[in-house]
Design a protein around this nucleic acid. Structure first.
Lengths: 228, 228
DNA sequence: CCCGTTCCTTGATCTGTGTCAAAAAAAGAA
DNA sequence: TTCTTTTTTTGACACAGATCAAGGAACGGG
């Protein structure tokens, strides 16, 4: 698949004339990252944003002691570091490839010109920023108002949704990464999954998860019911 | 001060022709709220966004048990609930007046028309969304990677900045509200301020704060030094 | 200025989750 | 397969911060 075809399918470029898209694609840069490779580092000077073409990328913050909080896991088609385009200067967090990944890079300057000439592109971008804002608000709520069992149950149910609702599916990321995404530790994820198993709500074999009782899991996710 | 003059000073409308601004102001609705009054409730149907004209408004999430996490405290000139314009439907959180407040409401439909015709307006809005995104990322980092003393020290230093760098200033919000903003409890705020006092870093008299030793406070805020 | 209400402080205690350590399991390399 | 490395699990323990409770201070309306 070539870049133009790929870009044409993305929500960001919906409604954009093919001619424009063609122009845009000419100013992009493709780059590959091996698993574990750094895409960018917080506070480094930044000059554009990325779209993930293939692979998986984590966007994360680090504490002085090296603890990590993942803000977002980027999947193919998702954009990231958009905010450098509008209040430029520096990357707002770190990014690292979780798998072998390929990115499309858009220089900020060219983007801004396009925004001025194409209101659809601007509307699409505002939609993307808005939905990310909503996700972040949810993350804040999770960290502050919900416990680890609630967050984990929510994640499992969400993942089940992505996997077409099948009761049996594989975790899409390592448990340690999941822990950093949920704002907890690998140990706590292990223990909480074990507790859910004991309660007969799920079954765990390695990264294979089977949801046995959906209702109680939903109750836990909603905070209407405690685990145990 | 009339509404048009007020709006003309805001970053959101920077670069907008006066004529356009005049049009815009005609479709707004003014509304007043008494202290403690609800501006909107999470998940209620939404159809536009607000700019705060005077007063103070908190945007917050609630847990099922009634615990509260403040996402943002809105000051005059700030917009809020912008995201309802782009991925409409529902308010993403609750809003309540912390003081007697007046708001200017913009219906989404008219806004969207303006965005299509005025790229500057769109760019300004993207800038606002981006900076809010950056703030939220910071909040996530605070909740997940930093302790209460770090967050509180950061808040005090930040507040000092707002108060022109004077060493003595008054808290701009009640301590209980501050607690919900920092993601902790009133008791913890009290205790942590007391500890900072004992350590000789600050002095507290009611809501009057005096910063005695700025350096150690900065070290604590940065996580390079522990309190006590 | 008084009195009721709200807000803040302080102490005692509880608890969820983090930390440290070590063994077990799984994944990769040779 | 076998060896090595990485990831996960489990246990014992520690601790920051929450909760509960009660007294004290500040505030605001009459």
């Amino acid at each position: 698949m070539n870049v133009v075809n790929f870009l044409a399918r993305l929500p960001l470029f919906r409604g954009l004339p093919p001619r424009e898209l063609d122009d845009l694609s000419k100013i992009t840069t493709l780059r590959s990252f091996r698993q574990g490779e750094t895409v960018f580092v917080e506070d480094e000077p930044a000059s554009g944003f990325y779209i993930l073409f293939s692979g998986k990328v984590k966007i994360f913050k680090l504490s002085p002691e090296g603890k990590e909080q993942i803000l977002h896991i980027i999947e193919p088609g998702d954009s990231f570091a958009e905010i450098t385009v509008f209040e430029g200067g520096k990357y707002p967090a770190n990014a690292e490839a979780l798998e072998q990944s390929r990115t499309v890079f858009f220089p900020a300057a060219a983007l801004i010109r396009k925004f001025r000439s194409d209101p659809y592109l601007a509307m699409n971008m505002m939609g993307i920023l808005s939905s990310r804002l909503r996700e972040f608000a949810q993350t804040i709520e999770n960290l502050s108002l919900r416990g680890v069992p609630e967050r984990l149950a929510t994640y499992l149910l969400h993942l089940q949704g992505l996997k077409n609702g099948a009761d049996m599916f594989d975790l899409d990321i390592k448990k340690g990464v999941l822990a950093n995404l949920l704002g907890t530790t690998g140990e706590s994820v292990s223990r909480t999954l074990a507790r859910m198993s004991e309660a007969g709500l799920i079954e765990v074999h390695g990264k294979r998860i089977t949801l046995l009782k959906r209702r109680p899991l939903e109750e836990i996710a909603a905070g209407r019911r405690k685990l145990d």
